[in-house]
Design a protein around this nucleic acid. Structure first.
Lengths: 231, 231
DNA sequence: AATTAATTACTGACCGGCCGGTAATTTATC
DNA sequence: GATAAATTACCGGCCGGTCAGTAATTAATT
């Protein structure tokens, strides 16, 4: 970390070294942006946005810092590109599921849950929720960008699925917004755990078991009840 | 964030100014540590650990940076003191509830949930979960400290409550560790939301409604079912 | 009680290293 | 040899941590 205070003793190499040894210095204008955002993603996820040095990003992409500035105007611009490229496609896939399973809200939610896990949570992209939560307050512009293009869109999708279930009399009629937030909270917890404490000093959770229990508990808990109440 | 890149345009004042105007320079050896940890807590919560400048902490405590170093050896030492002072007492209170409600696991869980919200979540301390998740990987020593003294202890407490309910035939016999993580995920989500997006560019959630729905859904979902299954 | 001596809490200027960003230069390609 | 691509050298500001010195307080001496 380079921020205000270095991690003092970060485990990984602190010396910046090129990914590959001095290659003959190729020119590959087309491939550069992707290589840079890929390198940036893994470093942002690993150390956070503020703590990641642009020189490292460049080195991991096999390029010099100056080259990075040929393709991105600033560190924040690079950040936005990482988000746009990484998350938005997966979100579109999720929206396709809505039409596909409109007749079965429970199956839809299950597809969304496991689909998210496979396409995002269980991937390098799974570090993005932690990244955004961590940096939102210090980089409001990026946060607004993410909130508008990812969070609102994702919550609308879940909310639609919940409304579908309510309309069919499968779920109790609670606020779709709150229920949507409830639905994602445990999976976000899972991915954030993996990218924080589990990455430094704690056991990881059993993801498959966790998701299975959660889905069952959620559907069971939201379902219309027989007679008695938890209260 | 001071780290590798400044927030560039952080909303708040970036000029450091003393909390009170130049007082005659009092000497208050006894009160200093508390004043410093209090100032540090609010700044850490507001901007994160790495992004908080020690000069700011000192200024908010009405003291100079040099004085801070008379009481704490380093920035990390200050961090640990903030954690220890802020969270541990509340945790002890929670453990007292276990004995008090050993006969009624549902009531126990409700007390733990709402107690946490009142004593931590709805307080300045509510920023600590986000803080720790954000900084864990870059400051593994502090993370280990927090994991050992707060997380493990808290999860053990919840796990005990769940085991109690299982033994009485109220809850289905799922892994107490996973169920414990499930139980806390939404409340952590709530407090982290408040200290990230809600603090910069999104609406806050209705905490009371959120907690009520969550508790009902959780108890209802974990309860032994009649016959049919969600799958 | 007044003066001085010794102690201790506190200050703020300063240092060294770091990193985002820029400009000058070199190398590749046609 | 002209142009585009990439590198290297460099700048300026920032911040954790240090330290020589100052102000407040207490103790000793008369």
């Amino acid at each position: 970390m380079a921020p205000t205070s270095k991690p003092t003793r970060s485990p990984a190499s602190s010396t910046v070294q090129p990914a590959a040894k001095a290659l003959p210095r190729r020119r590959r204008k087309e491939a550069r942006p992707q290589e840079l955002t890929a390198a940036a993603l893994s470093l942002f996820v690993e150390k956070g946005f503020a703590a990641t040095k642009l020189e490292e990003v460049a080195a991991r992409a096999g390029v010099s810092k100056g080259t990075l500035y040929l393709y991105f105007d600033s560190k924040e611009a690079l950040f936005k590109a990482v988000i746009a490229e990484g998350i938005v496609p997966a979100l579109e896939e999720g929206e396709a599921l809505l039409a596909e399973h409109a007749d079965d809200p429970v199956a839809l939610l299950r597809e969304l849950l496991y689909g998210w896990w496979e396409r995002i949570g269980n991937t390098e992209l799974g570090g993005i929720p932690k990244l955004m939560i961590s940096e939102a307050r210090n980089f409001p512009e990026v946060a607004a960008y993410y909130h508008e293009r990812v969070i609102q869109r994702g919550l609308r999708l879940i909310g639609d699925a919940v409304r579908l279930g309510v309309r069919r009399g499968l779920f109790r009629p609670e606020s779709p917004e709150l229920v949507g937030n409830l639905f994602i909270a445990p999976v976000l917890h899972l991915s954030m755990w993996r990218h924080s404490f589990a990455a430094c000093c704690a056991r990881d959770l059993d993801a498959d078991a966790f998701l299975a229990i959660w889905f069952e508990l959620f559907i069971n808990g939201l379902g219309v009840r027989p007679a008695e109440g938890g209260r």
